[in-house]
Design a protein around this nucleic acid. Structure first.
Length: 504
RNA sequence: GGUGCGUUCCUCUAACGGUUAGGAGAUCGGUUUCUCAAUCCGACAAUGGCAGUUCGAUUCUGCUACGCACUACCA
């Protein structure tokens, strides 16, 4: 049994899409489950689409999520280099091998000529049935062929596919998938113009040389998997061919189709792990990290989008995911992206943290001038009162600002509903009551105030709601006396006085 | 158009021939409370269709419908 080695092989063409993140995650989970290695290879054979910074972005994303790379770009390893643009000579050697073996040929058709063919012939495909009419080393007279090559005329190398053969790909998720070779075209493997292979060639050569045991990738690759199998065969690597697993796609939350960046913009949720400013298009995209997600929550959410270990557990640590992961429990159909559930996961992870941990995160995100022990202790208490009602640390300030700052305005709707004609008088009387309290603790102040309300036969709601409005500025927040005992007697009375003066 | 893959509640999914088809999110209702939330409780709601195999099909087979992917000198 050879060692499990998987790879994540993105193209540095922009931010790493969340679907790509999931592919990386599944590769990682599988590798770790099997005690294998996870490689990172950068597939930058398309220089036209290269975007500076994309590679660093990919690495930073994986780091943030806790997906550790054992070997590859950024960490090195015994199969270096791991950037395809740095492996030109390697590919050329195998391209020549195919050429020499008559399994590939050189084609000189220009993109324009191909375009003409495509419009001329319905469903044109460059294959056994049409290559005879095209300009290539199979059709050109020997002299002319030599001349074109001597002149340095650009050409591409195409794989020569024999028609009418059944090719079977064994997929770990879908079982055997068989297609006829007649429907696969003579794919371009190499371009003399830049001396680089195309995806298909580079991918097979690298997977073989890097001793990849399992190719786990998105379903969009399933149609070209037979071509890849053929390439392994042509190169004489059939016996060491990796196993394939094609993952279901991540779909739009609404309607049909693959999840795209546009969906995120439209529906207001990130489709990228990290914020990204595209240097080419100038577009800005938001990421999960900056939106306030915990990496563990994103990992947990993503892991369950297209895979489930059975049972009814929903919350899994990365280690638990590794322990229970298996490819045969990956579902076959695409999964719609459910942003509400993503928030729920974050909520769960936030609740699982201690008040101290959450307070530290809050303090980090919302710095205060006071950093005394006493103040931090106050923040911890405040956080403990409200954390269960938020999904994100970033929502904490909105829930707690009144603990730290007196309201400057009073919510209009609440004023209308809670501030009645007798409210100023009631609050004035409440001030007197509060002034008489020595022990301003939650239980004692509550007892005193409630006794006063009962004795005077006031309406509890009328008093408390006006009280809340005066102290908080609107009709929200934790238990009233939790608030007042924390901000203190003096501050409470100040706020009451101010409300009486201000609210009309 | 061609080829391939897929199809269980609104969404993610469980049940790998025998269950009242389960859980979670969302939604709705209730509980609670001085408020907003949260909590807790409850409700809601599905095997795309038609055949076949079988004592019995969500599960196996075929057809059909629908969806998706691919169909570049992009990955």
């Amino acid at each position: 049994m050879t060692k499990v080695r998987v790879r994540f092989a993105p193209s540095p063409t922009g931010a790493l899409h969340i679907g790509g993140v999931r592919t990386a995650l599944y590769n990682y989970l599988f590798a770790k489950k099997c005690g294998g290695d996870m490689l990172l290879r950068i597939e930058d054979t398309d220089s036209a689409r290269f975007v500076p910074g994309a590679e660093a972005y990919i690495i930073e994303s994986l780091n943030w999520l806790g997906i550790k790379i054992d070997e590859g770009v950024g960490v090195g390893g015994s199969h270096a280099p791991y950037r395809q643009s740095e492996r030109k000579e390697i590919y050329l050697q195998y391209v020549n091998q195919l050429l020499d073996g008559g399994l590939a040929y050189k084609a000189f058709d220009t993109p324009e000529q191909l375009e003409v063919k495509r419009t001329e012939i319905k469903n044109f495909q460059y294959d056994a049935s049409t290559r005879g009419q095209m300009i290539n080393s199979l059709t050109l007279p020997k002299k002319e062929l030599e001349k074109r090559i001597a002149d340095g005329e650009p050409f591409v190398v195409r794989i020569k596919i024999e028609p009418d053969e059944d090719i079977t790909v064994h997929d770990l998720i879908r079982g055997d998938v068989t297609i006829n070779s007649s429907i696969v075209d003579d794919k371009v493997l190499y371009k003399s113009s830049d001396g680089l292979p195309t995806y298909h060639m580079a991918n097979i050569v690298d997977d073989h040389l890097m001793e990849i045991s399992h190719v786990i990738r998105g379903e969009e690759w399933l149609p070209s998997a037979p071509l890849h199998v053929l390439l392994y065969k042509y190169l004489g690597w059939e016996n060491s061919m990796p196993q394939f697993a094609h993952l279901p796609l991540l779909l739009k939350p609404e309607g049909n189709g693959k999840l795209s960046k546009r969906d995120g913009d439209k529906l207001g949720f990130p489709v990228f792990p990290l914020d990204w400013n595209d240097p080419k298009s100038g577009e800005k995209s938001s990421g999960y990290r900056e939106a306030g997600y915990f990496p563990e929550a994103v990992v947990n959410f993503l892991a369950l989008l297209g895979w489930h270990p059975g049972g009814e557990q929903e919350l899994f640590s990365l280690q638990e995911l590794i322990d229970s992961f298996s490819l045969d429990r990956v579902s076959k159909s695409g999964a719609k992206f459910d942003y509400e559930k993503a928030k729920w996961f974050n909520h769960k992870y936030l609740q699982a943290k201690t008040n101290e941990e959450v307070a530290a995160l809050f303090l980090n995100e919302h710095p205060f001038t006071d950093n005394s022990q006493a103040f931090i202790a106050k923040v911890v208490t405040v956080v403990g009162m409200v954390k269960e009602r938020v999904n994100f640390v970033s929502e904490l300030w909105e829930q707690t600002s009144f603990f730290f700052e007196a309201p400057t305005t009073y919510d209009e709707k609440t004023v209308k509903k809670r501030w009645k004609e007798d409210s100023p008088a009631l609050m004035q009387e409440l001030i007197t009551v509060l002034e008489g309290i020595e022990d301003f603790s939650v239980s004692n102040s509550e007892e005193v105030v409630m006794n006063w309300i009962t004795q005077k036969e006031y309406n509890t709601g009328a008093v408390m709601n006006a009280f809340r409005l005066a102290v908080v500025g609107e009709g929200k927040g934790p238990h009233m006396f939790d608030i007042t005992s924390l901000i203190g007697k003096e501050e409470t009375i100040t706020r009451l006085k101010r409300a009486i003066e201000t609210i009309k």
